[in-house]
Write a protein that binds this DNA or RNA. Structure first.
Lengths: 187, 187
DNA sequence: GTCTATAGAGTGATAGAC
DNA sequence: GTCTATCACTCTATAGAC
């Protein structure tokens, strides 16, 4: 018997990718075991609450990553540098449009009902962190919130359209366009 | 036994709403029968191919609606009037942000693999029809395609964010913003 | 009676939980 | 692996239109 030892953090990352590809309902336990090579025993050891706990932990993990890598820098560091970094991280995190936003996908169907608070908080914090950075960088008060919302909407819409058209280039050029739009308000 | 008579068009509309709320995988046949009040007998009478045929017919039905109500007017009628009408239809079709885009939601998970051609054609035609109308209305050639893509991206992103935040107002103000942006290029 | 559309129990397969 | 619930789907009986 070949036995592979996994860390819980590996399990979270592996299962997350399955949810991203198949959606919450579409990801059956057998597909998860098949694609991750994790046994049912391992999965229920890491996630005693089953599928729902997996999704909750994955979302918390994604949220923590965004908080550390994007939201806190936007809130606390040099705003222009943090905003520039946000665009780079967004492009690499979503694999230039090849990877969907799990939290955005969960927001669209009834999965939302199980995780509504986490979904809402993630998007709210992204918009507020970006709006705050824009303000500190000199964007007029009236525009900052609107521009931040527009940026997050654009990212989500571009991910949807890139998948729908099977054309990841949509994502890259949308990021460029959104980035330029923010920069024009910084003067 | 109480027997209710349905039309197939009613069945399509009722089942579509269940898919919109639960997603393709999330919509089990028992949920579909419970929510639509259509018996399995009726459903398999209308859709001998089961769930997959339901989804295919629903998407064809949505596509036909958009072609008649939005794409053909954009392609053939007065471009400014057709564009104005597009914004009104978009707002009413998506119930001012309370209703998600079924085709956009299908694009995000593995459901896409079953219906990729229909999904791609729907979005491609929307963008091309809008870009054509913008061109005829005086938008510079270089901008028209990009602006049309931006509009469709904005609509999809706003639907996602409105659901995620539980705040439908996001959708309305995004439509206003997108509409104004197109209008500035018309001179 | 004939025929079509509907109701809903019943089927084997497979889900998620453990 | 084992368990039960639920899955997509089938099938028989029959209601109602003619």
């Amino acid at each position: 018997m070949v036995r592979t030892v996994f860390e819980k953090s590996d399990a979270i990352a592996l299962v997350a990718e399955v949810f991203r590809e198949l959606g919450y309902e579409g990801a059956s336990m057998s597909e998860i075991t098949a694609r991750t090579k994790l046994s049912k025993g391992s999965l229920y050891h890491f996630f005693p609450g089953g599928k729902e706990e997996m999704a909750a932990e994955i979302m918390a993990n994604i949220d923590a990553w965004f908080v550390t890598e994007m939201f806190k820098p936007l809130e606390e560091e040099d705003p222009r540098a943090a905003i520039a970094r946000m665009w780079e991280m967004t492009d690499s995190y979503f694999h230039s449009g090849r990877r969907v936003c799990l939290i955005g996908a969960f927001a669209l169907d009834e999965t939302r009902d199980h995780f509504s608070a986490a979904i809402r908080d993630y998007f709210r914090r992204w918009i507020e962190a970006l709006a705050g950075a824009l303000l500190r960088a000199g964007t007029p008060d009236t525009d900052a919130k609107m521009l931040a919302e527009e940026a997050v909407i654009g990212i989500q819409g571009a991910l949807t359209l890139a998948r729908a058209l099977g054309d990841e280039a949509v994502f890259g050029r949308t990021l460029v366009r959104l980035k330029l739009r923010l920069e024009t308000t910084l003067g």
